[in-house]
Amino acid sequence: MAIIITDECINCGACEPECPNTAIYEGGVEWTWAGGTALTEVDFGDGTVIDAKDDQEPISDEFYYIVSDKCTECTGFHEEPQCAAVCPVDCCVPDPDNVEDEETLLAKKAWLHAEG
Rank of each mutant, 00 (worst) to 15 (best):
N21D: 14
T22Y: 12
I24P: 03
Y25L: 08
G27R: 14
G27H: 14
G27L: 02
G28D: 09
V29A: 12
V29E: 15
V29P: 01
V29Y: 07
T32M: 05
A34H: 10
G35H: 06
G35M: 01
G36T: 04
G36K: 09
G36L: 03
A38T: 06
A38P: 08
L39R: 08
L39D: 14
L39G: 11
V42E: 11
V42I: 08
V42M: 12
V42C: 04
F44R: 03
G45S: 11
D46L: 09
G47W: 09
G47K: 04
T48F: 14
T48C: 13
I50T: 13
D51A: 09
D51M: 02
D51L: 02
A52Y: 11
A52T: 07
A52G: 07
D54S: 10
D55Y: 06
Q56V: 03
E57Q: 10
E57A: 13
P58N: 10
I59R: 08
S60N: 13
S60V: 00
D61K: 03
E62K: 11
F63M: 02
F63G: 03
Y64Q: 04
Y65A: 06
I66T: 12
I66N: 09
I66G: 06
V67M: 09
S68T: 06
D69N: 08
K70S: 02
K70L: 10
C71E: 14
C71S: 14
C71L: 09
T72V: 15
C74P: 06
T75N: 08
G76P: 05
H78K: 11
H78I: 00
H78R: 10
E79P: 10
